[in-house]
């Protein structure tokens, strides 16, 4: 399916968020996710299913003021 990952369209084979993160190369990275503007906790990624057109944000720690 095609979803937006951090603002760019990507083809993702897996339907579950946890597997999709692995497909996208984030396997062991410390990241936090939001789907269509809603926070998805890491423990909910396995049961969270993606759909065509979803907007996925994958964020990590960054410098801030």
């Amino acid at each position: 399916m095609r979803i937006q990952v951090n603002g760019s369209w990507r083809e993702v084979p897996s339907a579950a968020l946890a597997a999709a993160l692995s497909d996208l190369g984030y396997g062991d990275a410390l990241v936090t996710t939001a789907l269509n503007g809603e926070f998805v906790a890491s423990e909910a990624r396995v049961r969270t299913l993606l759909a065509d057109g979803d907007r996925l944000e994958i964020l990590a720690p960054m410098q801030g003021g």
Binding site: N6, A29, I58, L59, P61, M62, G65
Partner: peptide, 15 residues
Amino acid sequence: TVSLRRESAGERAGQ
């Protein structure tokens, strides 16, 4: 203070 930004799977700057 720290923040959150989009993480690239390739660069992994946040890690």
